[in-house]
């Protein structure tokens, strides 16, 4: 017995079984390939495919619930890939350091070519685009706004660092996360204690989520900053 809510369209119900089977097939192919591979980096790339199979199965639900479940799934997958790639790099580095014959270069650069152009648009345009992205992200609020604003922060950091200038913006941004959690929890609590203030609590939660996501995307820029140390 399958319970189907009355507001699911008829088309989505007929699309349910093909989507589930496609998700199962993709997941089966990905897990078989993971079982056959030895190198860790290949396994990490193939884990991406298992995430795609997860999206298939979740999106087959077809309502807003699916959308609400896909978003955290994708973000968790992103964080997982980031963490595992860091662990892989550190482990290989330890392995090579123990080998006395290997010569390990101290820092590897994301952009191998030194890039020096002295034009005015190189200094003004990235700032302007970053400002527009951050402003639009704050206007949007919520998850999407956080992603847009974080993209602006990353663009600013990368464009500054690629020219060899110091980035001062990202140093304190990790501390914003605590404030964001407080806003989110207060908003959530207010939603149950005083439901008549639902607009206030919605905006508290949305602004908290904005700060949270923007600071997280900014942290990825912080991590890339360690790569790009130029002389």
């Amino acid at each position: 017995m399958v319970f189907i809510p009355p507001f699911v369209p008829e088309t989505f119900i007929t699309m349910y079984m093909p989507a589930i089977y496609a998700g199962l097939i993709v997941g089966f192919i990905a897990t078989m390939a993971i079982a056959m591979k030895r190198e860790e980096i290949h396994i990490l790339i193939l884990t991406d495919l298992v995430g795609l199979a997860m999206i298939f199965v979740v999106s087959a639900v077809g309502t807003d619930l699916a959308e609400a479940l896909i978003l955290p799934g994708l973000v968790v997958e992103l964080a997982e890939t980031l963490a595992i790639s860091e662990i892989l790099i550190t482990r290989e580095m330890r392995k090579i350091e123990q080998d006395p014959r290997a010569n390990l270069t101290k820092s590897s650069s994301m952009f191998p070519q030194a890039f020096s152009l002295d034009m005015e648009i190189m200094t003004t345009a990235p700032n302007f685009i970053a400002l527009v992205l951050i402003g639009y992200g704050i206007f949007l609020t919520g998850f999407t706004g956080g992603a847009v604003a974080g993209g602006g922060i990353v663009l600013h950091a990368i464009s500054k660092k690629a020219r060899g200038l110091p980035v001062l913006l990202l140093d304190g941004i990790a501390g914003v996360s605590g404030i964001a959690w407080c806003l989110w929890i207060i908003g959530f609590l207010l939603f149950f204690v005083a439901p008549q203030y639902w607009v206030l609590s919605l905006f508290l939660a949305a602004c908290g989520l904005l700060l949270k996501v923007a600071s997280k995307v900014g942290l990825i820029g912080l991590l890339m900053r360690e790569d790009i140390d130029k002389e």
């Binding site: 980096i41 990490l44 790339i45 999206i55 978003l71 994708l74 992103l78 790639s85 290997a102 992603a147």
Partner: peptide
């Protein structure tokens, strides 16, 4: 929203993977 987030995370994940691959190849692993 899920479509936009999928596009964004796909781009970031491929950046992370390329960075990991480049660093591993530079180290000679």
């Amino acid at each position: 929203l899920a479509l936009l987030t999928l596009l964004a995370t796909t781009v970031i994940i491929s950046l992370i993977l390329f960075r990991a691959i480049i660093r591993l190849e530079e180290m000679g692993a």
